[in-house]
Design a protein around this nucleic acid. Structure first.
Lengths: 224, 224
DNA sequence: CGCTGCTTTGAACAACTTCAACTTCTGTGG
DNA sequence: CCACAGAAGTTGAAGTTGTTCAAAGCAGCG
């Protein structure tokens, strides 16, 4: 359900060896012709596009097991750029090959539909975040989301490193950096998380969930 | 590129006859098991989900030629509800059938990948709208988007009816109804559009584009 | 040791929301 | 066909949230 690690492993062997990517190195840039879809194997990748006035809009942070580049199929060109946030490794999968495999291997086509569908669904949830949530809810949702994704991958759900800068977080969440910084401080002084630079320790995950799940009346749930 | 009307026509005949839907009738509701994907054939459909505190978040307005329900593949259940904004007709395509056809008919698999990819891409653009654009830019983008879609379908790019309420527009754009109402008034008094209830006449499409494409310094481009 | 870039914090400001009132439309029943 | 009730839309004024501007604090690194 989460990552379908199993199938990606199978694919990986079918297609191409892993490839290392250095921090800040681009996997591809907006406008590049689509050749391959990439599966993140380790590290983390951010995808972003530029607004008309040249500012960056981050469209996602991608962890191991996730596929990137699927948004390029329609135009045969990447609408976003993809850049490593840290030293990472990816598995490159030539798309044409992938497509023809999908015609032959039972289940692979379905798997690909599922992956794209999941991304559509999570995009929709993210729209709700941007359209309806306030700053606190956005940051809490972001942290809960990361927590879940780390957990799925066998890491700690409560202690993890942010590979992206405050600026990137703010950009992604549609907020100003200053706002994000203030929110981290507040979450810390409220005893919900401990922050040490990039290291986050979630001390009250339940409360974080409550904030993320739209904090209703802001103090509705002190005891329950 | 736009709608691949051709292929949908082919599919339509392969699968099921059109089905009429009344205004406010649901095609499916959030939580329903996925049985079919729907192609809009006439009219318009809105998709929406509910936030934790029960408010509605509209995730899209869908015009003829568009497919809805693709976000349900991953969980085999619809994450959103779909409701007709006006009397419409849709073509129901049982998903399992569609998938097995895609294994056989050359090009259909690719077509489906493309359609999902296009949706991913437009979701990303929409994230940029919600994350970076101010109220004016949002409404202008919305109108430009509709204008383009109507044009693709052979209707006027400058004169069209909004099938959704002001409330729906505001909801979709992450704004308050009052803001949207004020913006319509302002666009009208600025001579960019003429508004008569649901009927919109775009009198200065170029200017509308300028506003939509992020109005930079707000008055950067008076002459050029 | 002193850059340089990222992060934090404070204070003023702006954009949008909220609240409230009023108007216009729509549809229903007398 | 008109009257009326409810829904939808518009407009104004006050209020909030988050942004912007400015400056200081801190860590990494030559």
């Amino acid at each position: 359900m989460g990552v379908s690690e199993f199938d990606l492993d199978a694919l990986e062997s079918l297609i191409k060896p892993r490839r290392p990517v250095q921090r800040n190195e681009h996997l591809y840039r907006a406008g590049d012709r689509l050749t391959s879809i990439y599966a993140v194997r380790s590290g983390s990748i951010k995808t972003y596009s530029l607004t008309n006035d040249g500012r960056e809009q981050i469209t996602g942070f991608h962890l191991p097991g996730e596929l990137i580049g699927l948004d390029a199929i329609n135009d045969n060109a990447h609408p976003c750029s993809a850049k490593a946030l840290e030293t990472s490794s990816v598995c490159e999968m030539p798309f044409e090959q992938l497509e023809s495999l999908a015609m032959r291997i039972p289940g692979l086509q379905h798997q690909l539909f599922r992956i794209m569908s999941r991304e559509l669904k999570s995009d929709e949830q993210f729209m709700t975040l941007l359209g309806k949530k306030n700053a606190d809810e956005r940051l809490a949702s972001f942290l809960v989301g990361l927590s879940n994704r780390f957990k799925e991958r066998g890491y700690s759900a409560t202690e993890f490193n942010l590979s992206m800068s405050r600026n990137d977080i703010a950009n992604y969440l549609g907020l100003a950096v200053e706002t994000v910084s203030r929110l981290f401080s507040r979450l810390q002084s409220d005893g919900i998380i401990e922050v040490d630079r990039k290291l986050i320790n979630v001390t009250d995950l339940e409360q974080l969930h409550k904030i993320a799940g739209t904090s209703c009346d802001k103090a509705l749930n002190r005891t329950g």
